[in-house]
Simulated assay, not measured.
Amino acid sequence: MAQRQPFYSPVRPPTLAMTELVKMTLDHNHSADLIAKWLEHRNDIYTDWFFSRRDQKHDRNQRQMLLWNKGDFLLENIFCRTVDTGRLIPLRTWTTHVYCHRSIHDRKRPMMPVVFTMLPELMLLRSMHDGGCDEIFIIVTDLQRQEMDEVTEYFKLVCRHAFGQCKPSMERRIQLEHMRITHALHRHHRIPCFPQIDLTLRAILFEKRPRFVVLFSPQPSSYSQILFTHRSYVPDEEIFFDYPTGCPNPCCTDNCEMLRFPRRGLETANVLEIKRGGKSGKRVKQKTMCNWIECDVCFNEDPSVKRTNGSSEGTESSENGLDPPVQHIVPGQLCSQCRLVRYCSLDHQRRDWPEHKKVCVKIQWD
């Protein structure tokens, strides 16, 4: 018996195999090349913002944190505390999957400028997570700002009610809203059409489980919408309250952002409240893990691992650049110098030292 082909529906999870958009992939090497090119121009508002992080005051117990204590302006010297594991690790590269209409692909328009336009934002968002952000997904459209806002509200509605089972009354509401937006965008000849945007975005959410998805419109001026898939993935207002808007006009206001980076936390972020648990996936849990990247010990989940606040002697040599002395530490031991990271054993602390020493300094906390 022939297998039934999947069909598109606004209220049923689609698959990426159904999309007609063209996918272009930029690997880690492309990301590294773009970052190196960006670092060559250190006179823009974004690099000024990064330099201002050196003087920013922090609370040691902050869920999110961005630190640059030593060295030149390089990715390996700027550290971010991840929201999923609590580790303090340097900024990293990633693989970008860009979905666009076939007409863009046929014109052989490169996608690297798309990624370069929002490069600082992607650097920060990628480094907020240990897992789930090694791949970043961008859908290129030609939506205007108001249209993109309407599309965003539609996706919020769908994810809140129709990511799993959907009530008949809500299903009718979603279908009517889908038809309204489709017809409105069709009148303005937007590409790709809204059903393709909807199919691709929901398929990415359903199959890839990303931390966020970006809707990007390059014309008439670059504009993007970042759709987060959980509240904990949103950047902290205490860190990014003064992040640049991306607009070249010095007289612009907060409502004139070209790149919708949520500088005010959840107040301005677009969060898709996806149904979690059961068939829709596992619930999101925040962890506190050993700072050694290859360690799986989680201090706030394993009852056999006891968290302590004793002082470790393993990082007393961080100022002179020598390897930390061999001394016994208990599981969950804080680094005695910066008191920002924990380790489950002396061996993992020593393994992590070549990287951690780039940010480990004695800090006067508020």
Rank of each mutant, 00 (worst) to 15 (best):
H129I: 00
V115C: 01
I139K: 09
Q146S: 14
V151N: 11
R145F: 14
M118I: 08
M148D: 05
F163A: 13
M128W: 01
Q144M: 12
V115F: 00
L143Y: 00
V151G: 04
D134F: 14
T141I: 04
F137L: 03
E150D: 13
Q146M: 11
M128Y: 01
R126G: 07
C133I: 03
F155P: 11
G132Y: 10
D142Q: 06
M128I: 00
I139R: 09
L125E: 02
L143D: 09
G131S: 07
L157V: 14
T152D: 10
K156T: 11
A162T: 13
H161T: 15
D149N: 12
I139H: 10
C159E: 15
D149C: 07
M128P: 00
V158N: 14
G132C: 10
I136L: 08
S127I: 03
C166H: 01
V158P: 10
Y154V: 11
L157G: 03
R126S: 08
E150C: 13
R160F: 15
K156P: 12
L119Y: 00
A162G: 15
F116Y: 01
I138T: 05
S127Y: 06
T141H: 07
F155V: 10
V158L: 14
Q165L: 15
I138P: 05
M118Y: 08
V158A: 15
L122V: 03
S127M: 05
D130Y: 13
E135K: 00
M148H: 08
M148T: 02
G131P: 02
F116E: 05
L125W: 02
D149L: 10
V140T: 12
C166I: 15
E150Y: 09
D130Q: 07
D130E: 09
F155H: 05
H161M: 12
S127L: 09
S127V: 07
M148I: 09
T117K: 02
D134P: 02
L124P: 03
F137D: 07
D149R: 11
D142Y: 04
H161R: 11
M148V: 08
T141Q: 05
Y154E: 04
H129Q: 01
P120S: 05
